[in-house]
Simulated assay, not measured.
Amino acid sequence: MATTSTMILSATSPLLGRAFPPPTNVASDAKFRVAIKSFDALLSTHLSDSGANQNTSFSVSVFSASDPALLYERHHTSETVAKASFGINEINGDSIYRIGSISKLLTVYTFLIQAGDRHLNEPITDYVPELLEMGGHVHLGPNWEEITLGELASHLSGISRDYGLNDFSVHDYEMVAGYPRLQPPLLPPLIPSDKPICGYLDSSGHMQPVIKLILYGGVANAPAAFPPSYTPAYCNNGFVLFALALERMKQEPFERLFNRSILEPLALHRSSYSVPSATQWLYGVVPGDPSQCGWSNEFGAFSPWVASAC
């Protein structure tokens, strides 16, 4: 028995590519002005809550590629920042934040600028064979030869989320993260090799320096959460390996590639890949002690997903 399918194209079939031209003169659009006014009022309503006002600082800017002027801008300084001993005490358009996981997007941009998308279906083991050499010591570990660069960059790899960071086996981590202390009898004991020895926040909030060889071995031997491309799940480790693959391709440190691809072309002179410089401290949003709030932490190999300052 054979079946035949026929695709009929008509004048109503959508074309591939962008469906509409980019908007122009957005600032003069009545509906946009109403939306911005409503958005601004909503922010004001939430900030009237004393808790939010005390601990929340932010900057919001809306722009269009077709308009040189900002369409909307608002900055809010929390009571904590207003009283801070380090950095600025009033946030404005020149303020600098440690931007955390937005760095993941910048990491993907760097990869696409430097290597394009033709490598995304290649296995990570083409560039980081250490995963095969170090792995295989745990039950249900990742099948590294099946995990592609694209899956690492899109939270589809199925590998463990973190090494060290957010690991409750680290001494006092639950207190650092603000959780109630766990009672030892509630959890089974771990053998020493299962406990991370770097890449975590200690009880004072300082990042324990990342030892790359230990990190790769820990990631390689952590059990897989699911098979590749089975389902999305947030994964920090994937971006460490993704950035390392680009380093191996280009034979250059990722920080240099990041600077050349993102910071220099856009003239982002006050942005950085690693710990903010002394000049950046003058503009920094530092809510409290620089070490405890993460401002002065050096994240090392974790930088492709957590550490940039903009």
Results as ranks from 00 to 15, higher is better:
residue 1 M to A: 12
residue 1 M to S: 14
residue 1 M to C: 08
residue 3 T to S: 12
residue 10 S to K: 08
residue 10 S to C: 10
residue 11 A to D: 12
residue 13 S to E: 02
residue 16 L to K: 14
residue 17 G to A: 07
residue 18 R to W: 10
residue 19 A to Y: 06
residue 22 P to A: 13
residue 22 P to V: 13
residue 25 N to Y: 05
residue 25 N to D: 12
residue 26 V to K: 00
residue 27 A to C: 01
residue 29 D to P: 00
residue 36 I to V: 13
residue 40 D to T: 08
residue 42 L to Q: 13
residue 47 L to C: 11
residue 49 D to R: 14
residue 50 S to F: 00
residue 50 S to D: 15
residue 52 A to V: 11
residue 54 Q to W: 01
residue 54 Q to C: 07
residue 56 T to D: 00
residue 57 S to D: 08
residue 57 S to P: 02
residue 58 F to A: 00
residue 61 S to I: 15
residue 62 V to M: 12
residue 63 F to C: 10
residue 65 A to W: 08
residue 68 P to Q: 11
residue 70 L to M: 10
residue 71 L to C: 11
residue 72 Y to I: 09
residue 72 Y to T: 00
residue 73 E to V: 08
residue 74 R to S: 04
residue 76 H to D: 01
residue 81 V to R: 03
residue 81 V to E: 04
residue 82 A to E: 00
residue 85 S to P: 01
residue 88 I to E: 00
residue 93 G to K: 14
residue 96 I to N: 06
residue 96 I to C: 04
residue 99 I to A: 05
residue 102 I to W: 04
residue 102 I to G: 06
residue 104 K to P: 01
residue 105 L to G: 11
residue 107 T to F: 05
residue 108 V to W: 01
residue 110 T to S: 10
residue 113 I to K: 15
residue 116 G to A: 09
residue 117 D to K: 12
residue 121 N to L: 07
residue 122 E to V: 00
residue 129 P to T: 07
residue 131 L to M: 07
residue 131 L to N: 03
residue 132 L to C: 05
residue 136 G to C: 10
residue 138 V to H: 03
residue 144 W to S: 03
residue 150 G to R: 05
residue 151 E to Y: 05
residue 151 E to N: 09
residue 153 A to I: 04
residue 153 A to F: 04
residue 154 S to H: 06
residue 157 S to N: 09
residue 160 S to Q: 14
residue 160 S to Y: 02
residue 161 R to I: 10
residue 166 N to P: 01
residue 166 N to F: 14
residue 172 D to S: 08
residue 174 E to V: 06
residue 182 L to K: 13
residue 186 L to E: 08
residue 188 P to T: 06
residue 188 P to G: 01
residue 191 I to G: 05
residue 192 P to N: 15
residue 194 D to Q: 15
residue 195 K to M: 11
residue 197 I to R: 14
residue 209 P to H: 08
residue 212 K to V: 09
residue 213 L to I: 08
residue 217 G to I: 01
residue 217 G to H: 09
residue 217 G to C: 10
residue 221 N to R: 09
residue 221 N to L: 03
residue 225 A to I: 11
residue 228 P to V: 05
residue 228 P to Y: 05
residue 230 Y to S: 13
residue 231 T to H: 12
residue 233 A to P: 00
residue 238 G to Y: 00
residue 238 G to P: 07
residue 247 E to H: 08
residue 248 R to H: 09
residue 254 F to N: 02
residue 258 F to I: 04
residue 264 E to A: 15
residue 266 L to W: 10
residue 267 A to C: 11
residue 271 S to R: 10
residue 278 A to Y: 02
residue 284 G to P: 03
residue 285 V to R: 02
residue 285 V to K: 02
residue 287 P to N: 11
residue 288 G to M: 04
residue 291 S to A: 12
residue 291 S to G: 13
residue 302 F to R: 07
residue 304 P to E: 03
residue 305 W to L: 13
residue 306 V to A: 13
residue 307 A to Q: 14
residue 307 A to D: 11
